[in-house]
């Protein structure tokens, strides 16, 4: 084990998988000599000449080319400079990558990765959490790691998967989160929740950046003798329904938390599964904490108001427990 930041763990996974498999390559904007806008791919161009490809500013071409090369035996990792820009190439994912297995029986082993999420005064076009769009598209897998060890292990699993995987990195976690990460090859299976804090009064079901805010909220709630279990779902598709239900059946209360906007967000899916499958176990209605239904604003004051904060989680948790 070695202590790594979230971003180091991602870079590490890329390097190990490139070393392990010649068919793994990277394409994207400024990813070669420059190492990418956030330096995730720094050094890989030199280590693996010809396998880190700079592209024009053309998300459609990046994603389409990734699909074509994946059909032809490669395992591309396409970087979106900001995950927001994936919208420019949305059609390639929503209609080509996602339907190829279904229509042709052919795998498209590709990963689309990049920085998403807010909290950095990035404004409306550098802050989006767009995972729900992709989770709503059959044929795509969706991964949102919260910790360095998961960031490494889930990326390795994504690269080895024979299907298209959307891998959402949270840019606010890149250098703010450190953790012990297994050295060398490390994979984490898809579709398994991680209980990151055990508790008995309430289950917080969350993923990505909100795992950390939920853990902080749990600390505060503990001061009031509220014992919170924090469940990190890690992958939205495939979704570990049983893992979520297991926790809810134990605590009999659930709060669903994500940084993405609330309306029709992935939280709605989680709530639906809980009420459908564990209604009898519930002692209170399931609540959600999510961003307000607005673009992510630029001004720090406004951004903090729009995005869910620790205090929002605390208040919602108290409401569920006090029901």
């Amino acid at each position: 084990m070695a202590e790594q930041t979230y971003i180091q763990a991602i870079s590490d996974a890329l390097e190990i998988e490139m070393k392990r498999d010649d068919s793994v390559y990277i394409l994207g904007e400024d990813v070669a000599e420059f190492g990418g806008a956030f330096k995730v791919t720094r050094g890989l161009h030199e280590k693996y000449p010809g396998r880190v490809i700079n592209t024009p500013i053309s998300e459609t071409a990046i994603l389409g080319a990734a699909i074509g090369s994946a059909l032809n035996g490669m395992r591309p990792v396409a970087e979106m400079q900001f995950m927001d820009f994936v919208t420019n190439g949305f059609n390639q994912l929503a209609n080509v990558a996602s339907t190829t297995s279904y229509r042709w029986g052919m795998g498209v082993p590709m990963v689309v990765r990049g920085p998403s999420g807010g909290g950095t005064s990035g404004g409306p076009f550098h802050s989006r959490n767009s995972e729900a769009w992709f989770a709503h598209t059959p044929g795509l897998k969706v991964v949102c790691p919260a910790f360095p060890d998961d960031a490494k292990g889930l990326l390795a699993t994504a690269i080895r998967d024979n299907n298209p995987v959307m891998y959402f990195e949270h840019k606010a976690l890149y250098r703010s989160i450190k953790g012990e990460v297994p050295e060398g090859e490390h994979t984490v299976p898809f579709g398994e929740v991680r209980v990151v804090r055990e508790g008995t009064d309430l289950s917080i079901i969350t993923y990505g950046s909100m795992v950390h805010k939920s853990l902080k909220a749990a600390e505060k709630l503990a001061e009031n003798n509220i014992s919170v279990e924090v469940v990190d779902i890690r992958t939205l598709v495939p979704f570990d329904e049983e893992g979520v239900l297991r926790s809810v059946r134990k605590t009999n209360r659930a709060l669903v938390v994500h940084e993405a906007t609330s309306h029709a967000g992935f939280g709605a899916e989680i709530v639906a599964r809980i009420t459908d499958k564990a209604f009898d176990a519930l002692d209170a209605p399931v609540k959600r904490v999510a961003a307000l239904d607005a673009p992510t604003p630029f001004a720090k004051t406004m951004e903090e108001f729009v995005l869910p904060q620790v205090e929002d989680v605390v208040q919602a948790a108290e409401a569920v427990v006090g029901y």
Binding site: I53, A66, G68, A70, L71, N72, V96
Partner: peptide, 10 residues
């Protein structure tokens, strides 16, 4: 068209 380009890129 980009898919075809990617195919031969491989």
């Amino acid at each position: 068209i980009p898919v075809a380009a990617g195919y031969v890129l491989a």
